[in-house]
Amino acid sequence: MLQLIDYLTRVDGGMGHDYSIVIAPRIAEWMVEADICDAIVDRADGGQEARYASHGWYQYGNNPEDVINGILSTCDGWMCEDVDGTIALKVGLYRAPTGDAISSSNILGFANIQFGQADESAVNQLDMTFTDPNQGYVTVQPSPYRDEEAISALGVERAKPLDLKWVQSNGQASRLAQRAMLRANPDITCTIITDLTALDWVGERWVPLKYPFIAGLENCVMENQGSELDLGAGRITFNFNLVVPTKVEDYNPGVDEKPAPPVPPPSPGAGGSGLDFGNQFNSGYLVLLEDI
């Protein structure tokens, strides 16, 4: 999270936002997210590691969206600008929302309600790639993360790439793939239009919803996929995915962690790590963000 704060507020090579405006009012919340990233979790080999670590680099001319997405991809991160101009952040550890749920009294309309995914858009396999320090920091592809039940039901594999180049751990890549698979195939997606009483939920990732007139939405939690505020019309448009909390955190490293790619034997006469940033450093435009 310190990486992201640095990039968002860095004048030279970052986005140059005013720290006192976008981060400082929420710094306590950001530090909670940083602690979640640093929490120690188990790996399949019996070892342990931080839940989420980020190691990457970018050049000054890189698209800011790509840099931010690179960092967020390492922690299943969710970020948005709240109504007060601050930047809200939630990393990938589900926490039940508190506060009054959005209900029928707040809802002005629905659009694009979809139950499940159409066969042609379903995803049942994620082809992960991450950066492996054991192989000279090259991008490697472990075993795909597959939903065998969904593959069997559909009768065909529908694969999607999952680029985790800022991740350097096979265990972390598997944890992120499990969460990405759930997000790719939500049980319900919808667009909900509310009045301004739902304003407090614009900057929240998980939003409680109580709508007794649609099956599955009677008393549930939705993940905020983006919102649009129209003060003139007095309405907010939310894009939501249904969240099943028991599924989101149902990860067992002994079962769900994919085998790490084998490390090939070194070539005769080879030495060093194989890591060479010479050209990038010589350009004078490289910024390293090493787990800060």
Rank of each mutant, 00 (worst) to 15 (best):
C37S: 04
V156D: 11
P97I: 01
N124T: 03
V243M: 05
L182N: 02
L217V: 03
Y58Q: 02
S73W: 10
I214M: 00
D84P: 06
F240L: 15
V67I: 07
E49P: 04
F281L: 10
E33M: 12
G92I: 00
N219L: 03
Y19R: 08
N112G: 04
L4I: 05
H17A: 07
L8Y: 07
D132E: 13
Q172H: 03
P265T: 11
D100R: 15
A101D: 02
Y251D: 08
E249P: 00
P262D: 15
A173M: 13
D45L: 08
D119V: 11
A153Y: 02
A44T: 10
D256K: 08
V32Q: 14
C220W: 04
P245V: 01
D45G: 04
E120Y: 12
G77N: 09
M1C: 09
N185P: 00
V22C: 04
N69H: 12
S143F: 13
V207N: 00
T98V: 11
Q172P: 00
N124I: 06
G56T: 10
F281M: 06
F213H: 07
E223P: 01
T246V: 11
Y60L: 13
P133S: 10
S143P: 01
T237I: 12
I236K: 01
P208R: 02
G278H: 11
A184F: 01
P268H: 05
L72Y: 09
G13V: 09
G272F: 11
D18Q: 09
V167N: 12
